[in-house]
Design a binder for these strands. Structure first.
Length: 542
RNA sequence: GACCCUGUAGCUCAGCAGGAUAGAGCAACAGCCUUCUAAGCUGUGGGCCGAAGGUUCGAAUCCUUUCAGGGUCACCA
């Protein structure tokens, strides 16, 4: 039971004596923003004015006169009727042992109780290298997965490969053109094809390995370029993602879904909601609030992207996942209503499918916006970004804003970020603690009781550490890794403050030194856990 | 036209299941290294929370209207 819960439960029983029945979980206990108002506060006295027909201050007096709790040194009324609670130093100090005993898993929770959860993200078409926009989705999705795991969800990270739609044929024709050019045969990349330099590299590789045996114009050869193109593009994508510390548990191919006959089955099930118009098959999605019904089979008989996607989502549920999360670029926002409607029509609970959108990244270079287009080949790739800025900084930056917020990536600033970048600030705090620990443990023992730690900077640091699990839970349930970046920044700040105010290694005061070493060890551990959640390294030395 | 995101300090943003004096970082200014990493710490200045109404004991937070910016609205994916 946390201290907050203990306070709530105590308040609940006091209120019962006053003739009001409110369960502990409905009593709001907030952490105060300002230490002048104690550590925790409740507004319950103000809420009950109408019930008890008394002024909030009088109600607060009644409650305070009966309030007593081991961990709380005092409760006092304040302002318009708040009750502020002050934690005893001894209760704060207990955090050291808790953290050290957890062996690096202080924030580990069991909220999810092993619920099988699937997080689908990136899922970029295998038609070339990943660019800036994908990179943000990759960073956010990866952190979401880390957060959910931390909270006890059984998370699978999945990448859906669009390897059967028209885009991959455009890629095939583009590679083929480059391939022919490579062989000295005149050919032109289709107007709507892919003009990036990665496609040229693919063609070169094919020439090196296969020579000219695919130079003839045939269906078989085009199929070869399609397959080879996906293989090369996906290989590159996986490599870049791995470099970015983003690894998937499972890849699902659209083509496999089609070949397994799963689309026909879905079509059969959706029949009651389908109708023919202008030679195409429409799915009724307006029944669930979509703007208009959606075409699933075009008048030429081919599928729109939606139909295999529906089959894919059904497949996810059928594989035993009870919670599905899709992370898409903001340009897919029209997609939410139609996929949710489809899922509902298939008999699944649409509330167990969450579609989160990652807003656009705008790139600024040389002081002005740099317009990107993957097709024309002037996109900034993830790989280039990592090379220029570094994995830690890129990850931290992409995750430091809510996914629903637009993000301006200033490349000039990012490159010169050195001392300005918060990621170094956090890592520095970690390395500093480590330096003390390395030096200290050769001469001193470590005291885990936290006794002697009463400096304001020490108490503040321990309180900050204690709030970690609740921050993790909040960040996970709202899929908001940016909350971890804020927390980590604050924790590092508390550490640096402690560092400057409190000398740790002091032969004159052995006992205090040992207590402070315990604090360093615990603080370092929590900071590392926080950094791990956003996939940023916690260096021992800098 | 419909829908999504956003207007908070000079800049980038937190805060938005209503609560006490609206917070950080950067930038500006003033201090702090004979002692564990100064990539650090301390202090100062800086705000009609886009605007107007409404709900409330109480609004940056909720509702309506309005202004401004970004984005999406395919038988593309």
């Amino acid at each position: 039971m946390t201290i907050k819960e203990k306070i709530a439960s105590k308040l609940s029983s006091i209120l019962e004596q006053l003739g009001v029945d409110i369960p502990a979980k409905d009593i709001e206990i907030s952490s105060t923003k300002n230490s002048n108002f104690g550590d925790f506060a409740t507004n319950i006295a103000m809420k009950l004015t109408r019930v008890l027909h008394k002024s909030p201050l009088a109600i607060a007096d009644d409650i305070i006169s009966k309030f007593e709790l081991d961990e709380i040194s005092k409760a006092e009324k304040a302002g318009p009727g708040f009750i502020n609670f002050y934690i005893k130093d001894e209760a704060v100090q207990e955090i050291i042992k808790k953290v050290i005993d957890s062996k690096g898993n202080f924030g580990q929770l069991n909220q999810g109780k092993g619920e099988k959860t699937m997080l689908e993200y990136v899922s970029a078409n295998p038609t070339g290298a990943l660019h800036l926009g994908h990179a943000r989705g990759a960073a956010v999705g990866d952190c979401d997965a880390r957060l959910l795991k931390k909270c006890g969800y059984d998370v699978t990270r999945e990448y859906y490969i669009n390897d059967a739609g028209s885009q991959v044929y455009k890629l095939a024709r583009s590679i083929k053109a480059r391939y022919l050019q490579e062989l000295g045969i005149e050919a032109e990349v289709p107007e709507d094809g892919y003009h990036g330099k990665d496609v040229v590299a693919f063609a070169k590789e094919i020439v090196e390995k296969e020579g000219d045996k695919y130079k003839d114009d045939s269906e078989d050869n085009l199929e070869f370029f399609r397959k080879k193109g996906i293989e090369l593009a996906l290989g590159g994508i996986k490599k870049d993602l791995h470099e970015f510390r983003v690894d998937f548990d499972h890849f699902t191919s659209e083509k496999d879904i089609r070949d397994a006959g799963k689309i026909d089955r879905v079509l059969e099930e959706l029949k009651p909601y389908c109708y023919q118009k202008d030679g195409a098959t429409f799915l009724n999605t307006t029944k669930d609030g979509d703007d208009k019904d959606r075409v699933i089979i075009k008048s030429d008989g081919s599928y729109t992207y939606l139909l295999p996607d529906i089959a894919y989502h059904k497949d996810k549920f059928d594989r035993g996942y009870s919670w599905l999360i899709d992370l898409f670029g903001a340009d897919h926002h029209g997609y939410i209503a139609r996929i949710k409607s489809s899922v509902k029509s298939l008999g699944y609970n649409p509330d167990k499918l969450d579609v989160d959108l990652v807003q656009m990244v705008r790139l600024f270079k040389d002081g002005k916006e740099y317009k990107m287009s993957k097709r024309t080949g002037n996109a900034v790739s993830l790989k280039e970004l990592i090379e220029e800025v570094g994995v830690d900084a890129v990850r931290f930056f992409f995750v430091s804003r809510a996914a629903s917020q637009h993000l301006d990536f200033n490349l000039d600033l990012a490159k010169t970020m050195g001392t300005v970048n918060p990621v170094y600030y956090c890592q520095y705090a970690h390395a500093r603690l480590n330096a003390i620990i390395e030096m200290g443990t050769t001469k001193y023992k470590i005291d885990e009781t936290g006794r002697n730690l009463i400096d304001p900077s020490e108490l503040q640091l321990m309180k900050k550490m204690a709030s970690f699990p609740s921050v993790v839970l909040d960040a996970a349930l709202t899929l908001s890794p940016y909350k971890i970046t804020i927390y980590v920044r604050e924790l590092a700040s508390s550490i640096n403050e402690f560092y400057t105010k409190c000398r740790v290694l002091d032969p004159e005061h052995i006992e205090l030194t040992e207590s402070r070493l315990g604090l360093c060890l615990a603080a370092k551990s929590v900071l590392k856990e926080g950094l791990d959640l956003i996939g940023v390294n916690a260096p021992e030395h800098m």
